[in-house]
Design a protein around this nucleic acid. Structure first.
Lengths: 213, 213
DNA sequence: CCGCATCCCATGTGATACTG
DNA sequence: CAGTATCACATGGGATGCGG
């Protein structure tokens, strides 16, 4: 459990000692979306062994990145203020990895929390500021995401509800965000299926959430 | 050698599959300073086992992060354009880890490349833009760094040479950059020893290179 | 000597089972 | 549900070997 040490005294090596272990930043990513219970974290990281999750949570707690907090009878894990300062790191790394995504493999899943952070990564406030407030409903297999864009801010929450445009998103949705797939082609190929609302609102969505190379 | 997979399809998990292995980002950090030979990388990462270094270099090459390039008879490793896009990530992670640095342990070393990136992390262009061009010479044990600040840009190179202010930096130099140690106290405590130039130029240095909390 | 490859052992990881 | 225990295995660490 002793944080494995790189033998160097510097900002990056210290950071990697704290959050550089396998799975650690993925846990942080999910907690950036909101506090989560142990079981919710395990569900959001389907392939993490439960003992590793337990170990990481203890390490990250010792590092001051997260804390266990009682929340109406149950215990949740939540980021400390210091842990929340990892948000720019997670967004920057996510943006970088986005461009190497390639094609999704069958075994790979898209969890609501990972999609939430990918949306935050791709969000362009300068663009959004010039658009009217819009609500999108994205269906992601079992889960639903509600995406509210208002001014230069975005809020992504879990659940279903009324939206200006509701659509299901397949794995290819990332190609839409990357600009590799035009909205019309996304609709034509079935990557996106509109459930309700005007189809051309998908263009506004793609314009608002776009990861420039 | 098969990149260990997180079973998720998202920007962050992809990034961690490419550069999330142990030592990988430290290699990238050193290559952000400039192309390096195998032996130079090994010297800059004193505790990396040589087989791990060889393995990482191959993995990072396969990931498109770096390439082997012949450079006047010898082979050097250099970042690809895609690899260079990791600079914001390295700077952000470095800034985050900086605030958890604590006190240096005896076994911990400060390498020229790690100090170079820490200086880039702490550099404040807005501040520098209002100051006259200045050259600093930082002595770091065996090695010397030449730091040129001009306009809103900084350039750090290895070596010795004339400078407006030359000084030796002990491990506590990071506390100066973090703003925990005032320049006068750094001089009084011997963390910094001026070799040449007016002592009060250290104030300008600390103002230019400062990591706000 | 530099640039790795090989070997061996300690440790971390992963899958599963199990307990309060 | 929220973890802990166990064990096989992969990876990391350190020393050493070796060809160009």
């Amino acid at each position: 459990m002793a944080a494995r040490d790189y033998g160097q005294f510097g900002g990056l090596s210290r950071a990697l000692e704290l959050v550089g272990e396998r799975w650690a930043l993925l846990i942080v990513r999910d907690l950036l979306v909101g506090p989560r219970r142990y079981g919710e974290l395990a569900a959001g990281l389907p392939r993490i062994p439960t003992n590793i999750l337990a170990t990481r949570l203890k390490e990250l707690q010792a590092a001051g990145v997260l804390r266990r907090a009682p929340h109406s009878r149950v215990i949740v894990y939540e980021l400390t203020p210091y842990g929340r300062e990892l948000e720019p790191v997670v967004l920057a790394l996510g943006a970088w990895g986005f461009h190497a995504l390639g094609d999704p493999r069958d075994e790979q899943v898209i969890t609501p929390d990972s999609m939430t952070m990918d949306l935050r990564t791709a969000f362009r406030p300068e663009i959004a500021a010039g658009l009217p407030p819009t609500g999108y409903g994205m269906r992601l297999g079992e889960a639903g995401l509600l995406i509210r864009v208002e001014g230069d801010a975005v809020a992504v929450t879990r659940g279903d509800g009324p939206a200006d445009l509701s659509f299901t998103a397949g794995p290819g949705i990332h190609r839409l965000l990357a600009g590799e797939l035009a909205p019309e082609r996304a609709l034509a190929s079935g990557v996106v299926e509109v459930l309700s609302g005007p189809r051309d609102l998908l263009g506004r969505f793609a314009h608002t959430f776009h990861l420039a190379a």
